[in-house]
């Protein structure tokens, strides 16, 4: 089981990006957008959705695209629901043993805390990658109002996706990029706009590491 752990502040574009990544991953396996593999109907990709509030929206968006989704509501998996996350992950492994599991955290979560839980208690984890989405359009505002959260999310990411660059001028994007890289210089960095189809080469490098 290979895990992609997605973090990033509310509204940064995690769900839009996950939709594209899911298409890439499933297409990579079976050249079609379905989470079912042809050999025996085994599920190749499962998404775990952790949402703020007890009425989920992101899970419904992903399910409407035919994706297999498990919900974890009424708490945050980086703190109050970390035990539930472990149980959920291990059940997925035992029941389905998918090649890929995508976890979408709430916009208030610290992904490194979730990664710590998975590393400690997860079973049969082949790989774990933390991907954090940063909102280029709101970078100034968010890094001013909530610097601890925004920087904490980015600081330990393996991959940073600076999203919504279509909302800024190129020089503004460069400025934000510099500030994001200043927080975490070791992560792979990509500036994207998930409003449009992202170059699959980026997903190959960032997600599957090819």
């Amino acid at each position: 089981m290979n895990i992609l752990l997605f973090g990033g502040f509310l509204g940064s574009g995690k769900t839009s990006i996950i939709l594209q990544v899911a298409r890439h991953l499933v297409g990579d396996i079976e050249e079609g957008f379905s989470t079912r593999q042809s050999d025996g109907g085994k599920t190749s990709l499962v998404i775990i959705e952790n949402e703020v509030g007890e009425t989920g929206i992101d899970d419904k968006i992903l399910k409407a695209e035919g994706l297999s989704v498990r919900d974890l509501f009424a708490g945050c998996i980086c703190c109050t629901l970390n035990a539930e996350l472990t149980i959920c992950l291990n059940e997925i492994q035992e029941e389905l043993s998918p090649k890929w599991v995508i976890i979408e955290t709430t916009g208030m979560a610290f992904p490194d805390r979730v990664a710590e839980t998975i590393t400690k208690y997860g079973k049969d984890i082949e790989s774990l990658k933390t991907i954090v989405v940063a909102d280029a359009e709101r970078w100034d505002e968010l890094s001013t109002v909530m610097p601890g959260l925004v920087e904490g999310q980015i600081s330990k990411a393996d991959v940073i996706l600076l999203n919504k660059i279509d909302c800024l001028e190129p020089e503004q994007v460069s400025d934000v990029e510099e500030r994001v890289r200043g927080i975490n210089s070791s992560a792979l960095f990509y500036a994207i706009s998930a409003q449009h189809e992202v170059d699959s080469q980026i997903w190959r490098e960032a997600v599957t590491g090819k």
Binding site: G53, T55, G75, G148
Partner: peptide
């Protein structure tokens, strides 16, 4: 309204809790 809840995020992240309106 099938659901109408305010969920208080209990993250120990020193951030202010947001107000949440969430309904189906």
């Amino acid at each position: 309204p099938e659901h109408s809840h305010q969920h208080i995020l209990e993250c120990s992240n020193q951030q202010p809790d947001p107000a949440i309106f969430s309904e189906t």
